[in-house]
């Protein structure tokens, strides 16, 4: 009873709260980092150095009037933000934050596939938001978004196949353990796959330079144009939660999860003094920072250029990468 119900529930409780808090502070981090990149200070008024801004924003959003457009499909309009947030949170159930069983909710043998399939549900939130708003800009944006997400999902999934080939398992814990055994992070074994997943991850989380679905300058805010208050906030939570998911996945698949650098080099054993989860969060932070940095630097792709990049560049490279990986796997 204790092991099968109470402890997992407790873990889920802690995890959900941790993720949501992390997401709120991600917004602050993003604003701060972008501000620094643009030689500004960012939020400074709420709390010391604006730290409490992350709490002030959700309070504001909860208290705001929640408007449903007159001719919107009420049910779907409400359902859409929920549908986009829930998958983003569900995914965390199979993300191992450390090697010990304490640090993950569950480790299923199809962990990676589970992540891919659950995130693929998130696209419904975007499509339905655009459709249910009964407004032209959101509809255009949601069409863009769904086409974009499906295309890049294919590219990312194809790329992950080569990682699975290298690791020989679909379990998230197993993939990290495989890296421990080989003594080399897969980022060094599969550099091409790493870059592809990173680019695909940017596209799947609608981040710059692939933030077309919410391109403010073109589509006045994209699929969530008609949303306000907490429902609007849910979309943001989903976006940031998805970002955290992608960085976690990249960390696990390519940068050894909770492992220290060069896990098999005895001379560096002192690095083990730092607990694994700190390594994990440190690596995640680097990638989150990278995501924000990219947003502050790059212009936005156009829709057709984005699709061309996905279908004509990323997918062929991903397939070639699978073939190369397979050949090496057979030869070695």
């Amino acid at each position: 009873m204790l092991d099968t119900i109470v402890i997992p529930l407790l873990k889920i409780l802690v995890l959900l709260n941790a993720v949501l808090v992390a997401v709120t502070f991600m917004t602050l981090l993003e604003r701060k980092v972008i501000a620094w990149a643009q030689s500004r200070l960012g939020p400074m008024r709420v709390g010391p150095y604006g730290v409490l801004q992350a709490i002030a924003d959700p309070i504001k959003l909860i208290l705001k009037e929640d408007i449903t457009p007159a001719r919107a499909d009420r049910m779907l309009f409400t359902l859409a933000p929920i549908l986009s947030l829930v998958p983003a949170l569900v995914v965390f159930s199979v993300v191992p934050f450390g090697g010990d069983e304490l640090f993950y909710v569950t480790d299923i043998n199809v962990g990676l596939l589970f992540i891919i399939s659950v995130t693929s549900i998130g696209v419904y939130g975007i499509i339905l938001a655009g459709w249910a708003s009964n407004s032209k800009y959101p509809l255009l944006a949601s069409l863009r978004a769904s086409a974009q997400l499906i295309s890049y999902e294919i590219a990312v999934t194809m790329t992950l196949v080569s990682v699975i080939l290298t690791a020989g398992t679909l379990s998230m814990v197993g993939i990290v353990e495989a890296q421990q055994e080989s003594g080399l992070w897969f980022g060094f074994v599969q550099p091409v796959a790493f870059v592809l997943v990173l680019i695909g991850g940017l596209a799947e989380t609608n981040r710059a330079p692939f933030d077309l679905p919410e391109a403010e300058q073109e589509l006045t805010g994209g699929f969530h144009t008609e949303y306000s208050g907490m429902r609007f906030a849910l979309f943001f939570l989903a976006e940031y939660a998805n970002m955290i998911v992608i960085t976690a996945v990249v960390t696990i698949l390519f940068w050894g999860g909770w492992l220290r650098p060069f896990p098999n080099v005895e001379a560096l054993a002192f690095l083990d003094l730092v607990p694994g989860w700190i390594w994990f969060f440190g690596k995640m932070f680097v990638f989150l920072y990278l995501f924000i940095w990219i947003r502050a630097t790059l212009p936005r792709y156009r829709y057709d250029q984005l699709m061309r990049l996905g279908w004509k560049v990323l997918i062929p490279i991903a397939i070639a990468n699978i073939v190369v990986t397979g050949v090496f796997k057979v030869l070695l």
Binding site: N109, V110, L113, F114, I116, S117, S120, V123, I150, E153
Partner: peptide
């Protein structure tokens, strides 16, 4: 049959029906 379950979600729910919806 976890594998089948995941594939069911990935292919049908996440892929094909999205196109239907489209």
């Amino acid at each position: 049959a976890e594998f089948l379950a995941v594939i069911q979600v990935l292919v049908y729910a996440g892929g094909i029906v999205v196109l239907y919806l489209f």
